[in-house]
Amino acid sequence: MPKTAKHMYDLSSVLPLAGLSAVRPGSTLLVSGPALSGKEDLVRELLADGVRNRQGAIAVRTDGNGADWVAEIEAAVEPFPGHRVAAVDCRSGRGRDEQELDTGALYYRVPDPADLTGIGIGITKSFDRLRDAGVTETRLALTSLSTMLTYADRRTTFKFCHVLSSRLGSAGYLGAFTIDSTAHDEQTMQVIKQAFDGQIELREAGGGREARLRGLGTDTGEWTAI
């Protein structure tokens, strides 16, 4: 397909697992683990790492403030290329609105996580913005699907994930979506993970944290201390 990113995404400097040093453009990952296992920090760092490597970053937050993430990425990347960063927030409580932050980052808000159309519009506007900036490689993080699942049923959430994954696939972008593995039954986890190309699992072990990778065309990896 034309216009898609040709380069593999190297995520190994954020998470040193076999299989993450060359991730195919258009791949999407489910990042799962219990509360406080570092899922959010991990995907935010994936975005910051991309921005450092001249890529675009899109943060979709159903459960927190997207502008805060932009600020944290700004603090981690110097100089900060605001035109390559966009955030979609799902907690405006009112209508949809679009603004540009002082840094030049795009900030789009929808009333609540049930407004999937609004989230889709925010993501599309972010794509537009990044295309205008001449960016061909972009990472998108969505956090979290657990919140989305309290607003939309499993069927709708699964389809949304599938359709967004498909869109990221044709754009050649990389996607990382977080879910709290202890907040849902096994059936839900089994179904949701089918919408993604791979899964990064996180857990606490022996006072430290461990991660492993499944899917992405590799065998399930070993638990690795991070």
Partner: peptide, 12 residues
Amino acid sequence: FIATVRELNDAE
């Protein structure tokens, strides 16, 4: 993308 997501939202 938007048309498909809108359809999901309407169905929901």
